[in-house]
Design a protein around this nucleic acid. Structure first.
Length: 277
DNA sequence: AATGGGGCCTGAGAGC
DNA sequence: TGCTCTCAGGCCCCAT
């Protein structure tokens, strides 16, 4: 599932391939992929023949900044992928959007489960976009401090896991890194957010940054169903460093106790019953 | 205001 | 072999 490290990996790969190129033509083969617009034609019209001047990331969202004052927003959902291809090459199954660029490059959006989407939005500043304005702090940015995490957790009866995945508090964390950050911090994910001590909040803050940074360095995590591929079509490397996510039944790398999982809001959370309290 | 649950989707894998 | 069922989860919407 593309979370912050996966999206950042794709951004870095696409940057040298698409920046500076103009949009020549756009094709949408599944309207659900651009469902924020009344029709695919509207999406295509708003893109026009703009040039891509930069790609920035906000949480799990990618923004292709255009020289017409708008931005192409891509949210990958569970199974969304972006890649560049030769315009004449056979598209992979579930390719829903084709953006032909100058220089013989085509940007393609692929998404089997169709939870993701593309949209054209006004402006270049994500904090001023209604689509992304509700997003919380960037966990790898300077603004994310232990104090900010403390405010996000304080008074919350919801589980730590739920708060970490709440994009309006901290943006970019999903199932994988919420599980992993709790493990690194030694905190049980089933605890109420407000129950963490100051020391635990400091540890959790450091754990969030550490796990995200290491996952970016490893080019993201490709989980069991291998849905995630980077823009070059390769799997990530962080799945080999996971401690708890989808590791249930395996011995903890630290203490050897078997990793467990429990249902959580229709999902599962993974933890080591010995290392996390 | 905060919280929890349902629905959207398709492919992989399990079970029969 | 081939069918049916379950699971995966980001994000939005709605009820409490």
């Amino acid at each position: 599932m593309p979370e912050l490290p996966e999206v950042e990996t794709i951004r870095r790969q696409l940057l040298p391939q698409v920046v500076g190129r103009h949009i020549l033509s756009v094709r949408v083969t599944r309207s659900r992929a651009v469902r924020a617009h009344a029709t695919p034609d509207e999406f295509i019209r708003l893109l026009g023949h703009a040039a891509i001047i930069d790609i920035i990331r906000r949480g799990k969202a990618l923004l292709f900044l255009l020289d017409n004052g708008r931005s192409l927003l891509a949210r990958l959902g569970m199974s969304g992928r972006l890649k560049t291809a030769d315009p004449s090459s056979t598209p992979e199954p579930h390719t829903h959007v084709f953006i032909e660029l100058s220089g013989g490059v085509e940007l393609r959006y692929i998404d089997p489960r169709t939870f993701g989407q593309m949209a054209v939005v006004e402006g270049h500043d994500p904090d001023r976009m209604i689509e992304l304005g509700h997003y919380g702090v960037e966990p790898l940015g300077e603004a994310f401090t232990p104090e900010v995490l403390c405010r996000a957790l304080s008074g919350k009866t919801a589980l730590i896991q739920a708060v970490l995945m709440d994009q309006t508090k901290i943006t970019g964390i999903g199932k994988i890194y919420a599980d992993e950050a709790c493990f690194l911090a030694g905190v049980h994910p089933e605890r109420a957010a407000c129950s963490l001590t100051d020391d635990e909040i400091v540890r959790l803050h450091a754990a969030i940054r550490e796990v995200l940074q290491k996952a970016v360095e490893a080019r993201g995590t490709s989980t069991l169903d291998a849905a995630y591929r980077d823009a070059a079509g390769n799997v990530g490397g962080f799945q080999f460093q996971l401690h708890v996510y989808q590791q249930n039944g395996r011995p903890c790398r630290v203490c050897g106790t078997l990793i467990e999982y429990r249902p959580f809001q229709g999902r599962r959370m993974h933890f080591c019953p010995c290392c996390q309290h």
